[in-house]
């Protein structure tokens, strides 16, 4: 790169459109990592610092299912959802449920949980990176005209869209969803109408944990399976949730927005600088709109 073109590489349309497509892919990666956090934060108000480690557990359960039981990669994805969901359920029962009224304590407690999970994983699996085998068709790329996109990115995109649609149905078209929204808006009132709010919180937390597990399972096709891998996803997840305001639609919009911006800035400059600009923009945005894009009308705890 010549010195004069540090901030503006030679512009050409095909490369720019490639960057836009890639932006959608980055958006889907950040969004799928953030969905579990969105649900736990949005519905139960818990700031889950162990979210990254739940993603990591998803990746390790995929690794274990594959190497110890020989289960194919694609089947590991829903199974990891169930396994990490069960871990989340356990976590909620033994720890989180005592802390719903103390959000700052939940933050500290879940941070502690994240350290325990990292060290525990390291003790059980060792600290070296693990290999997860992906089917051959996910090792290639698809070329449509001048747009070139890896098939694994398409898979992640499709899964993200499917999960978002499923969540929308769950929250806005099912009985459980009505209960969750009722408990989120006014817990005591919902309880007086016979909604078991403890159970709703429990199921919501398990669902959020399961979604983190699903994200971990699918992301290990691209990333590196390590005890510390969760940290890479925690920051983008929080960005998406905070910018989105904690609602599902907000997270989708924030995910697409931040992902695209990251890709476009990275196209014009480089990766490090792109993050720098993105974070500054987010700080400015939150200064102007601290409640995020789509703040739910619920009362805030």
């Amino acid at each position: 790169m010549a010195a004069g073109s540090l901030f503006l590489t030679q512009f050409n349309w095909s490369a720019f459109i490639n960057a836009l497509v890639l932006g959608l892919s980055i958006a889907s990666i950040w969004l799928i990592a953030a969905l579990g956090l969105t649900i736990i934060y949005g519905a139960a108000g818990v700031i889950n610092m162990a979210h990254g480690e739940l993603i990591m557990l998803g990746a390790y359960s995929t690794y274990t299912l594959q190497t110890s039981f020989g289960i194919p990669f694609l089947l590991c994805i829903p199974l990891s959802f169930l396994i990490v969901g069960a871990i989340g359920l356990l976590l909620e029962r033994v720890l989180i449920r005592y802390l719903y009224k103390r959000p700052l304590d939940t933050m500290l407690a879940t941070f502690g949980v994240s350290l325990v999970l990292i060290q525990g994983t390291r003790i059980i699996f060792g600290s070296s990176p693990k290999y997860v085998d992906v089917p051959e068709f996910l090792s290639g790329s698809l070329e449509i005209g001048f747009v070139n996109i890896a098939t694994v990115r398409i898979l992640i995109f499709v899964v993200t869209v499917a999960v978002c649609v499923a969540l929308w149905f769950l929250f806005f078209r099912s009985r459980f969803g009505i209960q969750v929204r009722a408990v989120t808006q006014e817990k005591e009132m919902a309880a007086s109408f016979g909604v078991n709010s403890g159970r709703v919180y429990m199921m919501t937390f398990a669902l959020g944990a399961g979604l983190a597990g699903l994200a971990g399972a699918i992301l290990c096709a691209m990333a590196t399976v390590l005890p510390t891998m969760g940290g890479n996803y925690l920051v983008p997840s929080f960005l998406v949730v905070v910018v989105g305001g904690g609602a599902l639609a907000g997270s989708v919009a924030a995910g697409v927005g931040t992902g695209e911006l990251q890709s476009i800035f990275a196209y014009f400059t480089n990766d490090t600088f792109a993050r720098f600009v993105l974070f500054i923009l987010i700080v400015v945005f939150l200064r102007l709109r601290p409640q995020g894009l789509f703040a739910p009308s619920a009362k805030r705890r």
Partner: peptide
Amino acid sequence: GSSEFGPVLN
């Protein structure tokens, strides 16, 4: 520690 190489590969 980044695991996103899409922009670089483009």
